[in-house]
């Protein structure tokens, strides 16, 4: 068996090391090697957004990143969104607005939406829809997702004002 590559990275603020094959995607590394299965696979070609993570400060589809590219990078995933025992306002808003049905796309939506709110506290509906166009949801028709993001934005703004 050809040698695997040793990768050290920071995931959700914690230092992490793993061994992987160059052909393994970061999505595979997270799920199959590190057991972080919150990041989901829907298409494995970048078109559904279920595997969205924050990589080096930007949201990306982790199916289109190689595990070996994670060397020295900062990564955040759905597992790092909640604040300890408290849900992030986005997570809470998704629940209160019934913004999920089957839930498979939800981690990707929440990671992507959080990245939006982190950089733009007051996105309008059009902006939310544009930002999230790389995240497919087949259950909800997006209505309740957009509303949940709007509600979370308002909550985050209130929190920031406090």
């Amino acid at each position: 068996m050809p040698a695997q590559t040793h990768v050290t990275a920071t995931i959700n603020g914690e230092p992490v090391q793993f061994l992987c094959e160059p052909r393994q995607s970061l999505l595979e590394c997270l799920r199959d090697i590190l057991g972080m299965t919150g990041t989901k696979e829907g298409c494995n070609d970048g078109n559904c957004g279920s595997c969205t993570i924050v990589f080096d400060g930007r949201i990306v589809t982790s199916c289109l990143v190689l595990g070996v590219e994670a060397r020295g990078k900062e990564i955040s995933t759905i597992e790092g969104i909640a604040r300890g025992n408290r849900l992030h306002p986005l997570q809470q808003a998704f629940l209160e607005n019934a913004a999920l049905q089957c839930g498979i796309c939800t981690p990707g939506f929440i990671v992507a939406a959080k990245a939006l709110l982190d950089q733009e506290p007051e996105p309008d509906e059009e902006r939310i829809r544009f930002w999230l166009a790389n995240n497919l949801c087949r259950c909800t028709g997006y209505d309740k997702i957009v509303r949940a993001v709007e509600q979370a934005a308002a909550v985050c703004k209130q929190e920031a004002a406090r």
Binding site: G49, T52, V60, N134
Partner: peptide, 9 residues
Amino acid sequence: IGGTQIQGR
């Protein structure tokens, strides 16, 4: 070129 995630890469 692609959605937000793709534009990150």
